[in-house]
Amino acid sequence: MPRCVDAVQTVPRFGEGDRVRVQWRFPDGHIRTPFYLRGKTGTVVRSHGAFLDAERLANGLPGVPATVVYQVAFAWEDLFPAGADARGRTLILADLQDNWLDAVVQEVA
């Protein structure tokens, strides 16, 4: 019997302002990480808290352990460098599961 409640990862790994890179991988299935963000680096805006793991749920598995979902901001020009829309500052924000994010060591300026 799958347990309804499992050890929930309640403490977010990342906080506001942390730089994170989206993993560059291409698994099959119902994935909530859009292709256009894979391999890109962004900044955590906030943690939305823990949710049942949508990728596991979509594969017929119990959604545990739960995963923290973050809102991550990407500079628009980092995603679409050839874009013809570059007027003013534009950010793309997306909600991403913890298991898709790696910490980025801050580059020395």
Partner: peptide, 17 residues
């Protein structure tokens, strides 16, 4: 028409929110 001095935030509703 959003003036250039206003930041645009496109929010992609990708998951549980």
């Amino acid at each position: 028409d959003i003036p250039d001095d206003i930041e645009i935030r496109v929010v992609d509703s990708t998951a549980d929110l």
